[in-house]
C-alpha cells in the first residue's frame, strides 16, 4: 500500500531489532524493558500509525527515530543513512504543541528556518505555510492567544517548513475536542497527500488510526513489542461509519484484548 500521491518527499524508514532499557526510577538495580527487539519497515510516503496501551514503548520508539535517544541494541535507518542524532529531516510534533511561548506565531513557524540558518533564502515560504494551516491572520499573536487546534496547526507548520523526510507525530490530536480532531485529521491527510511525507503517527484513538493510516502497528507493553501489523486497504477518503471500517475496528479491539464485554 503506497501513498496516493504524485510527489514523494518522504524517505523510507527501517527499524532493525531495536531494544531499549530504562533504569527504574524506584529501584536503581532494576530495569524496565521499554522496547524488546522491535523491527519495522516503512516505505517512502507511507502513513503508519502505532496504537497500543500506555507503557508499550510507542513514544520511546518515536524518540529513537527522532534521534533524541539512542537504542540499547539495534539500528535505525532513514533511506540509506543511519540515525545518529536529531536532524531537521525528521520532524516531531507532540501532543502538547510546544510552541515557543516567547515567539509570535510567525516567528515560531520560522524557527526551523532560523535554526538551519536558511531564513534569508526561504523567508517567502513562511507566508505560504501560514496560509497552508490557516493562521495567516494570527501571524503576530503569541501562542497563549491560540486555541488548542490553532496551536497544533502552528506546530505542524513549524515542523513541515523544513520539508522533513519523515514526520513523527506523538498523539498530536490527543488533546483536541472530537470535532476539532476530525477536522485536523483531514488537514493532516491533506498535507500528507500533497507532499508524500513519510508519517509515523502515534494515537490512542483506533478510529483515527483506521481513518488515516496505510498500516496500523499494534504494540503490547512490558516488554514493548510489536504484536501485529494490519494493512488498511479501505479506499480514501474513508467513511467513518462504513461496514468495513467498523469490522476493522472490531478486529483491532480484539487484538488489543478489548474485544469482548466482561462477562
Amino acid at each position: 500500500m503506497t501513498a496516493p500521491t504524485a510527489t514523494v518527499e518522504g524517505s523510507s524508514l527501517r527499524v532493525c531489532g531495536v531494544s531499549k532499557q530504562f533504569a527504574s526510577p524506584t529501584d536503581p538495580t532494576a530495569c524496565t524493558q521499554a522496547l524488546d527487539n522491535v523491527s519495522l519497515e516503512v516505505t517512502a510516503g507511507e502513513l503508519v500509525s502505532i496504537v497500543g496501551p500506555s507503557g508499550c514503548g510507542k513514544s520511546t520508539l518515536l524518540r529513537l527515530i527522532a534521534g533524541l535517544d539512542k537504542p540499547g541494541l539495534g539500528e535505525l535507518w532513514v533511506g540509506e543513512e543511519p540515525i545518529v542524532g536529531p536532524s531537521a529531516e525528521r520532524g516531531l510534533v507532540f501532543q502538547d504543541p510546544n510552541l515557543f511561548p516567547w515567539l509570535t506565531v510567525r516567528r515560531n513557524i520560522e524557527s526551523g528556518l532560523v535554526a538551519r540558518g536558511v531564513l534569508r533564502d526561504k523567508r517567502h515560504e513562511v507566508d505560504e505555510y501560514m496560509r497552508l494551516v490557516g493562521l495567516d491572520a494570527f501571524a503576530g499573536a503569541f501562542p497563549h492567544h491560540l486555541s488548542g487546534g490553532m496551536a497544533q496547526r502552528a506546530a505542524l507548520a513549524r515542523a513541515l517548513i523544513n520539508h522533513p523526510k519523515v514526520l513523527l507525530l506523538d498523539e498530536p490530536l490527543g488533546a483536541l475536542d472530537a470535532f476539532t480532531r476530525m477536522r485536523m485529521q483531514d488537514e493532516v491527510l491533506r498535507l500528507w497527500e500533497s507532499r508524500g511525507t513519510t508519517m509515523v503517527f502515534i494515537t490512542h484513538d483506533i478510529d483515527e488510526a483506521i481513518y488515516m493510516s496505510d498500516r496500523i502497528v499494534i504494540m503490547t507493553p512490558r516488554p514493548g513489542r510489536i504484536e501485529r501489523i494490519i494493512d488498511v486497504t479501505l479506499d480514501r477518503p474513508r467513511e467513518r461509519s462504513s461496514r468495513e471500517f467498523l469490522q476493522l475496528r472490531g478486529d483491532i479491539l480484539e487484538y488489543l484484548h478489548f474485544g469482548h464485554a466482561v462477562r
Partner: peptide, 21 residues
C-alpha cells in the same frame, strides 16, 4: 522545558541556537 529543547533539536538547531534562542 525539555520538550522545547527536543523540538528545537528536531528543527535542526545547533547548540548555540539551543542556548541563545
Amino acid at each position: 522545558r525539555a520538550s522545547y529543547l527536543d523540538v528545537a533539536r528536531t528543527l535542526g538547531a545547533s547548540r548555540s541556537y539551543l542556548i541563545f534562542r
